[in-house]
Write a protein that binds this DNA or RNA. Structure first.
Lengths: 377, 377
DNA sequence: TTGAAAGCGCTACCAT
DNA sequence: ATGGTAGCGCTTTCAA
């Protein structure tokens, strides 16, 4: 296992030049049969594996598309301990996998597979260098908004996008007329649909929003919710800068604004003796964690209080009660991102395009409307 | 958007040498502050992204680990049309995702993430070149057995493993004292546990195995099943070379052996008037498809016939009836593979190691033993 | 059809 | 602390 064999080794063993070796692989029919066989034989004998790096260098461009996903466990503090840290292999738990990111990633992979491109999955970037490092290995990069706008990470994207096509899965606070491409769900429409259903159909009046407003997607939803409530003459939900529980009728809980406690803590602090008509959660994960806690404390959903989610992840369909939620076309979002990047890799356009995919209101048991059969047959 | 800026461009703009540019990025503290700032500034200005290819070439070795997964939809012909081809974005369906491969992949990704390595996901190889191409981009490669031993794909692995560390997720018919590493579940123990439960607890006598024996894992399970039955003085299940339905008492269905019809066809052909005591399926996917079909044809599971699966994928827990199955520690398998590859990338060992992870019998509703609550709280 | 040789962009060693 | 420079392994003209 000395050195990785190279074209030179193969060439020598086959008694040809390196150019011929390369040709034997890349343009098999421009090489005499016997020569090609000799080369291939030599290659096999040596265990020759062409260096992707060298190839990429020489040709410019790898056929790889990148996906930079953030830490899947970011919000796992919402879960009960057993499921929180899946280091040991427990039984599959839909509260842990697949989540929003996983579903998008799957779409991304499917599209790449279909286009014969491979996928590079990179970690949550901790430094600007992580970003450039990853961007440097791919022909295009899709990026989830880091929940925390880490030091310089957002800035470096602005620089990198000049060189590498980038798709953002959220507005992420950047202006809309730049080189970034954007793929996102119709947060606005989805959020309004939820409010319309809760207020118009269920006659809900006191609504509480649950979600970290530092997340761009969540913020968009919150704004739409607030506006939709105002349209109906209801008190707008108060907004806290980071994590917050906001009650339409009693928004005097200033601690939320100040300490930005995590959602788990906020949920634990909810007073079960003074419940709103409905909790409007910024994500399914939050809704599920909330219902779990409420149930433990003797509060029944939807009998005592309505809970809605957002995303439409698998867990929202298979856990009971099933969630009333807004489904994002997650796989489609992933596919769309991959499609854009593949196209941009071919010939790059100057300005970014934005694709907003429709969302769907899904009625589940958590508002009292839906059913939740998962029976086979 | 002319040419990708290079070290030379940055060096020129910053008024330093390329070596300094490189240092400014790789060893920030061995460069004077002002110099570093100048370099970083120039880089940002140009949208400089260091070429991963060039870096990999120069340093030898990318920090990337590869996972070559086979087509997720291979067995999708088992599913009803709506779920079969997820090109359009439907609601999440546990029969389609996450499957066995996805769960393993997730473990692989988690381990890589933890180790600061990124992941390269490659497609089902169609040619030997696909294999070398992908192997050439990574420091190590984990491979699922291609369901079909495509032309030369298996052979080329034998050659490639001399150069690139490879983990196989199944025996795949290769000898055990080669350079391949192997990570697999205890198929043997799991299969025996199922039979013990069915025969000893449920007094099942007539068992039918359902699965394509061309798949190495399935074959292992089948062999263990047969042996375990023999131990109890029961007629062994007959084996067909490829896809097959084998009835312990009536193994005269020669067509199965000859035409190797796919599982979907075999399921469709099952006579509901002459059911065995239990169907022992080679995978959860098969079991789920079977139950779906049986239910449609008026057969109740487990009342009329017992069905067992294998894998313990999420769907086996959330669909009704829940499956009696053998859970493989899928995420652990993925993690283990990544761990081995990461270690081998550091310093390679001469001979391959084999890790066999334990399986667990899970009692579900499909044999009449388990319950299937998915309630929150 | 095949060979020679010039890069591709970066790193790291050796000087300074 | 910084610069010069020789590769890393492959592709790809251009010649032969």
């Amino acid at each position: 296992m000395a050195r990785r064999p190279t074209v030179y080794d193969v060439a020598k063993l086959a008694g040809v030049s390196t150019a011929t070796v390369s040709f034997a692989f890349r343009r098999p029919d421009e090489v005499r049969d016997s020569t090609r066989e000799a080369v291939l034989q030599a290659a096999r004998e040596l265990g020759y594996v062409p260096s992707g790096a060298a190839r990429g260098l020489a040709r410019g461009g790898t056929g790889v598309l990148g996906l930079q996903s953030f830490d899947l466990l970011t919000e796992s503090d919402l879960l009960s301990p057993p499921a929180a840290i899946p280091v040991d292999d427990g039984p599959p738990d839909p509260r842990v996998f697949p989540l929003y990111v996983d579903e998008v990633q799957r779409g991304f992979e499917l599209e790449c597979r279909q286009r014969g491109r491979s996928v590079h999955i990179s970690n949550d970037p901790r430094t600007p260098q992580d970003v450039t490092d990853h961007a440097g290995r791919v022909d295009g990069l899709a990026v989830f908004p880091s929940r925390a706008g880490l030091s310089g990470v957002a800035d470096v994207l602005e620089s990198v996008v000049r060189t590498v096509p980038i798709v953002l899965f959220s507005m992420g606070g950047v202006s809309a007329d730049d080189a970034f491409h954007r793929v996102q769900a119709d947060n606005d429409g989805g959020a309004r649909a939820v409010i319309a259903h809760l207020v118009d159909h269920h006659r809900a009046r006191r609504l509480t929003f649950l979600g970290d407003l530092a997340a761009p997607d969540y913020q968009e939803r919150f704004i739409a919710i607030t506006d939709e409530l105002a349209t109906r003459g209801l008190a707008p939900l108060a907004a806290a800068s980071t994590a917050a529980v906001n009650d339409a009728t009693a928004a005097d809980d200033a601690t939320a604004t100040q300490h930005a406690p995590d959602i788990a803590a906020i949920i634990a602090d909810i007073s079960v003796t003074n419940l709103p008509d409905a909790f409007v959660c910024a994500s399914d994960q939050i809704a599920i964690a909330l219902i779990e806690q409420l149930t433990r404390r003797g509060v029944s959903v939807p009998a005592d209080v309505i809970v809605t989610g957002f995303d439409g992840i698998l867990a929202s369909r298979v856990l009971r009660p099933t969630l009333t939620t807004v489904r994002q076309p997650m796989a489609d979002m992933g596919r769309t991102a991959a499609r854009i990047l593949a196209e941009e890799a071919e010939n790059r356009s100057e300005t970014g395009r934005t694709v907003i995919l429709p969302t769907t209101l899904v009625l589940g048991e958590s508002c009292g409307c839906g059913s939740g059969s998962t029976e086979l047959g």
